[in-house]
Design a protein around this nucleic acid. Structure first.
Lengths: 142, 142
DNA sequence: GCGATAACGATAACGGTTCTCATTCGCACA
DNA sequence: TGTGCGAATGAGAACCGTTATCGTTATCGC
């Protein structure tokens, strides 16, 4: 998922977010991460790379990025939120309950199911979230 | 969803949780609630009824109840958790984005979809969660 | 370069949750 | 009906993730 600094900069501008050096550092670190990370973890990794980014900036940037749809926010840890750089399209997540790996499921195909389930209770659906929890290939065999 | 004190007491014992008066108060208040509530809200309602239950006890009890599968925990508010007395069986939730009403969807029927989505990425699924967000019948017309 | 504005870092404040500990309660047993 | 012991409880402190504040610094249009 690692991307060039230019690509990430373009991504930000396209979303109407000014691409400052600090924001690029955060985004770059996020792109380096295959799974989801908490704000604090991300901050820790930035410090290891001798970035002077402050914790507040990390939170601000993650907030901006999630608002503009660049990152997904997962709250499966109860208490703290996890962030992940995700594709643009509607998708769901597979979570490994052992190693916490996160994999995107691009194929949704649940629209009909969602519509009928919602309709049965008088709801008009606007969105839906699915999380599949299980064991990933590595944890299954290891 | 209101249930007799005896039924609630039985429910606790059946789950291996000692049915103390305080715990019954909490459970009773939870049964009175059609939607989900936060721990703090629940505590507030107990105080209104002149219950002397402490906040710590409310948290402890909700923790116990969720561990033993008597209540569901929803973390859709980011930051604080919501609790809800739910049926025993596997189910999903419909959330009204306007009034925050929560409705259980008993019919799942997603096992095949889940299995194939997981398998496609090398996962063995153990559980899945679905939340449908939308507008309930009242908020749709109102 | 210059000025207005946005972004930034350090740190305090906030709010939900958990921990601590002294007290009380519930239950088994004498 | 006491008595003792472990579990449960309440008050409040501690904790921790997050957000707000504020003075400083960088950025961009001119």
């Amino acid at each position: 998922m690692t991307a060039s600094r230019e690509a990430l900069s373009d991504l930000l501008e396209r979303k109407g977010v000014r691409a400052t050096p600090r924001r690029l550092e955060v985004l770059e670190e996020l792109a380096r991460e295959p799974d989801d990370v908490t704000a604090q973890q991300l901050w820790g990794r930035l410090r290891e790379r001798d970035s002077g980014a402050g914790l507040a900036t990390v939170y601000r940037t993650l907030g901006l990025l999630s608002e503009s749809g660049v990152v997904d926010v997962l709250s499966h840890h109860g208490g703290e939120q996890c962030y992940r750089l995700c594709g643009d399209e509607h998708h769901h997540h597979l979570l490994c309950e052992r190693c916490h790996r996160v994999v995107e499921v691009q194929e949704c195909g649940l629209d009909d199911w969602v519509a009928s389930a919602a309709e049965r209770h008088g709801f008009v659906p606007t969105d839906h979230r699915v999380e599949i929890v299980g064991l990933c290939a590595d944890c299954r065999s290891g």
